[in-house]
Design a binder for these strands. Structure first.
Length: 454
RNA sequence: GUGAUUGUAGCUCAGUUGGUUAGAGCGCUAGAUUGUGGUUCUAGAGGUCGCCGGUUCGAGACCGGUCUUUCACCCCA
């Protein structure tokens, strides 16, 4: 047992059964992304730490996987820092690369680096794994796949609306019941502004994000613990407890935020997005949720989150608008908006609800039993013709007992088996066995292909 | 990072207050069946009880550490 190999905590192997299902998800989102004009890119698994650090907040920095420098890295490190066991100082000297934490920041880096080759607005999608060093738990892995779609170089709210359409179409195709929650960072900023706590917007959003989980009282306690005055906490109560339809909520907010220019701008943005969605007659449930904050500190406008309605697993898609992400890398005034589909959580949801269709396209339809000798060529020739018409076929590579070969077909769920021994070869025919019914037919090659086609 | 929790055959799990040679079901291999799988019958293989250390005459069981699993918190897809 001790010698048994293993994989790192929070990572997983994907066997054929799982990969067929995973690819179904990837193929579906890819198809939708392309339909809306997004094109694929890929970026390296590792980035320079300077690219990654400081983009995800303090918490995010801790969750970055760092890669040790090559060679005798310790001899180049500051011996004082080593003696003092000052992890942070030592880390800077022995590691300059890290595994990417998401796809958005590497994308911003990509946009800046390739700005002269890119035509804006630039619409791209990216389906790759990301890594986070937090403790695995339900629906949380250390290595997982994100499917990102982003548009950069356009301020238009049409992009927000389009992404909502993408969400609707993807989950419609996958047959998952979802609700999209939307908020706007500008409204949150407005709220912080009117209570005179603009610098504490992150604390405030993090706290009110927990309303569902811990309840109003605890949220208020947390706000107080963060140093908000009683008066300030009182002022935001109506905001936290806002209810009604989206337009009712917005109307009420307009009153509360009347004196905040930025707050009103956020409201106007949401109004337009809602209006367009209504016009397009989207079936997707889109709900304004002021408790939706999201920790990432680079969002500046819309914030999205999608939850599966039938499974409790946290959000399965998230995103938002970021006005100045490329600014950190030296390219000003490029606004972007994007969302990320969490493939692994979507998989978990679909698996739990048994939503995966039988995927016949990836299954072998017919197995030829190997009789060896001259029969091998006879079979190989027939298999070539069967494959030419697009039917998945395989030939058992070794001449072993038929029992074993039949069993192989059985285990792989192959619906048809062809027997081509001396008898068949002499008659120029093929014995086709239906593995479900057990029925056997003697057929010419033409009839065989015809039968396998339907 | 904090607090719990799990680990015995390939898989799912039994294993009494510490006591001889650690079991079951499923799966696997072989045979019954030399051109027929999925059913049935028979036989067989497969374990350093996660790892390291400690207590004891004696540890799968008790203690410490470590890794792993699962879950909550923080945070997040």
């Amino acid at each position: 047992m001790a010698q048994k190999p293993s994989i790192p905590k929070g990572t997983r192997d994907f066997s054929p059964v799982e990969m067929v299902k995973r690819n179904y998800i990837f193929d579906t989102v890819r198809k939708v992304f392309q339909k809306y004009g997004y094109l694929p890119i890929e970026t390296p698994a590792m980035e320079n730490l300077s690219t990654l650090m400081g983009k995800y907040g303090e918490e995010g920095d801790k969750l970055l996987f760092k890669i040790l420098n090559s060679g005798d890295f310790l001899s180049k490190a500051d011996s004082n820092a080593l003696d003092e066991k000052a992890s942070n100082r030592v880390m800077n000297q022995i590691s300059e690369k890290g595994l990417r934490y998401d796809l958005t920041v590497p994308f911003a880096r990509y946009v800046v680096q390739h700005q002269n080759d890119i035509t804006f607005p630039f619409k791209r999608y990216q389906i790759q794994p990301v890594w986070r060093a937090d403790r695995p738990q339900k629906g949380r892995y250390r290595e997982f796949f994100q499917c990102d779609v982003d548009v950069v170089g356009s301020n238009s709210l049409l992009n927000e609306v389009e992404l909502i359409q993408v969400v609707e179409e993807v989950y419609n195709l996958l047959n998952i019941n979802v609700a999209l929650k939307i908020n706007n960072r500008k409204i949150l900023s407005g709220i912080a502004e009117i209570i005179g706590a603009s610098d504490q917007i992150v604390d405030i959003t993090v706290a009110i994000d927990k309303l569902d989980k811990i309840g109003l009282e605890k949220v208020n306690e947390e706000l107080a613990a963060k140093g908000l005055s009683e008066q300030a906490i009182n002022m935001i109560q109506p905001v936290i407890l806002l209810s009604g339809t989206n337009s009712e909520k917005l109307a009420s907010l307009k009153g509360t935020l009347a004196s905040s220019e930025i707050g009103l701008k956020g409201i106007a943005e949401l109004e337009k997005v809602f209006a367009y969605c209504e016009h397009l007659n989207l079936k997707l449930e889109v709900e304004l949720d002021l408790t939706l904050a999201r920790g990432l500190n680079y969002y500046t406008g819309a914030i999205f989150e999608v939850k599966a309605k039938d499974v409790a697993i946290g959000s399965i898609t998230g995103g938002g608008r970021y006005d100045d992400l490329t600014g950190i890398f030296g390219l000003k005034d490029v606004s972007g908006v994007g969302i990320s589909f969490g493939a692994d959580r979507i998989y978990d949801v679909m698996n739990q609800l048994e939503l995966f269709p039988l995927n016949d396209g990836v299954r072998t339809k017919v197995l030829f039993v190997n009789f060896g000798g001259e029969d091998e060529l006879y079979a190989t020739t027939a298999i070539k013709r069967i494959r030419e018409v697009g039917i998945n076929a395989e030939f058992f590579p070794d001449e072993t007992k038929i029992q074993k070969q039949m069993n192989y077909a059985n285990k792989k769920n192959i619906p048809f088996v062809v027997l081509t021994g001396e008898k068949e070869r002499a008659e120029g025919e093929y014995t086709l066995k239906n593995m479900l019914s057990g029925e056997q037919l003697h057929l010419s090659i033409e009839k065989l292909i015809e039968t396998l086609k339907d």
